[in-house]
Write a protein that binds this DNA or RNA. Structure first.
Lengths: 196, 196, 196, 196
DNA sequence: CATGAATGAGGGTTCATTCAT
DNA sequence: CATGAATGAACCCTCATTCAT
């Protein structure tokens, strides 16, 4: 058993209490990293940005998907709270997709590559739930066409977020408004056509 | 274990004439690789699949973008020829986006990250040209709403291709048909609404 | 994803009395770990298997060698007790080496890399003591050749344990029996030859 | 596609001709490394010792087993040549195991952990072949007992090499001579006993 | 002009060890 | 005295890029 080399004393150990703090810092760092560098940024960059050791990153999030899920879960919880609190509209949903595109909806891409992960499926189901309720209410009120189905909304939201997150920041507003118009037109009452 | 070859002569060096042949082989290999393994596949895998040395890959395509451009250029030339040959419809365009999503439209994503590259801009301009003519003709014939602008089409095409290329193969048809319906409804004559 | 526990209280702190209990649990865990995963298993796995904190592992056993020594010490104490209790034969010794090969004699390898550690030397001396008495008695009874020396036995025991611990479980019996035959033949009365 | 950082120009590229040379250097380095640091030395240490890039190490030997096999293969080829050239005795075999224990027979351990690898099995078969011929000849000449089987020899050789490679260099001669005596006695004509 | 081996930096992951609670 | 999270160095491996032949 060769003695392990012990070069430098470890840096500060903030102790056990740093756990939850680190977890939050990692999620926040992930938002920044993925917004700045995209979903292919090095996983270790998240630890560096959070000011946390590599090991702690892996303790909290054993793989990329776990971290992506944690970030998206926060977005989703926020969305659910908002939906419970009042009348959420399709525009609310899309607006969130746009503003959060930069920071976290880009994670959709990551998540979609792990589509069969049960944790991912659970998040998908929760999002679908929100969409279904929204759709029922808006259709009942005549603000959305009867031809619209939940899957239309979830796919559109994903496409919207993806397109925005890949668009130059100084063109995001213009592109967002264009896509919103397209979707409004497609989902408006009376816009339904027989599928091809 | 058989003795390792001490100094096998270099494989066939097909000489100067192999240049264009290699170029074509590399582009074809790129289509396969990106269809099979996605846009993050190792660049060097293209050379291997093409049966060509690494050096030749770099000689022909100094970076990933150069190769992506070459692939997309072929798609575009084909589209232009088709457009010149007859009445190209919006559905023709979308159908191509769908069928080529797997092999090459995923390159859109790659290309969009190099949006300011002049070669990329030139391709974008050529694509826009095709779309503008298509739009004029179809609007004149009353098959597309007057509210539709070329940028709507180019963005939609990109979103469609992206979404399809990231969708599970066995759900591609269903998703494609759903997106097509959305876009039809959005672009149909009379679907126009004031922008938000 | 359920909300992560923000600050779960530390698990039961069983207080001062848990010291000896933890020590025993760690030694038992070490046997299991090394039997299941081999001597290169992570040191920290022992703590986990014992259901004990990392800190306690290091408090009781500051390094791998300390733990290996503790495990082997138990084996040895058991052997000494057995030897005191009655007529221990060479086959008893070998049988123990075989059955304990899996769980602890593999530690011989670990210990041998720290051969100059005084604790290791002390264990070696105790083992040698047992062997010497055994040898005297068996030679006096004519069951072992006069040419056999204690070192022959200690080396053979180590080789036997090592070979068994590295053999596929389903071939251990066959290999063990073969090695036992070799050693019997070598140590039998009358088997002595001049050394080369 | 973020541009890859290009910090420093790569060191000398000795070109394609360095291939076979590197392969030999790696095998030689492996002998040294495993003799000095044991079979658990970092794989990358071999590349460093050989003065070769990590990538070249992996090109030539995709995993540890491949390298171990290459080293052992050289030993084995040498042994086969020696056996073909004249009368190889059991002592020749054991002497080789002892002198090569330090540099490469320790690989037996590594190889035995991959026992089901077909490349490993092929080497085992070749070694067995040498042993079988040796045994036939020596038994016919009355220099080895009829009770000895090839498996006895292969196991003994492995145990001998392992024990020597783990013994302190300044005690190797003594231990080797002791083990040789044991094996001589066990394999001598007339040493056979019924198995237990 | 093609070839394909060499190179080494970079990212992923593990794990020995420390230390606040 | 126990706990278990934090830490970061080390190792593994891949792959973009270069360059002698």
């Amino acid at each position: 058993m060769p003695l392990p080399p012990q070069s430098a004393p470890p840096r500060t150990n903030r102790g056990r209490a740093a756990g939850p703090e680190n977890r939050r810092a990692l999620i926040a760092a992930a938002r920044e990293i993925y917004a700045d560098d995209g979903p292919d940024a090095p996983f270790s960059a998240v630890a560096k940005r959070a000011g946390v050791g590599q090991g702690s990153l892996y303790r909290h999030f054993p793989d990329r998907t776990a971290l992506a899920i944690a970030v998206y879960e926060e977005n989703l919880a926020d969305l659910e709270a908002y939906a419970r609190a009042g009348r959420i509209t399709l525009d609310d949903l899309f607006t969130r997709a746009i503003t959060q595109a930069a920071s976290s909806m880009g994670f959709i891409a990551l998540i979609e590559s792990d589509r069969h992960d049960p944790r991912v499926e659970a998040l998908g189901a929760r999002f679908l739930e929100v969409v279904e309720r929204l759709l029922e209410r808006e259709q009942a009120a005549g603000r959305l066409g009867e031809h619209v189905e939940p899957k239309d909304i979830t796919i559109s939201t994903g496409m919207l977020a993806t397109e925005i997150s890949r668009t130059d920041p100084d063109q995001r507003d213009a592109v967002a408004s264009r896509i919103l118009t397209i979707l409004h037109n497609a989902f408006a009452p009376g816009a339904g056509r027989p599928k091809p």
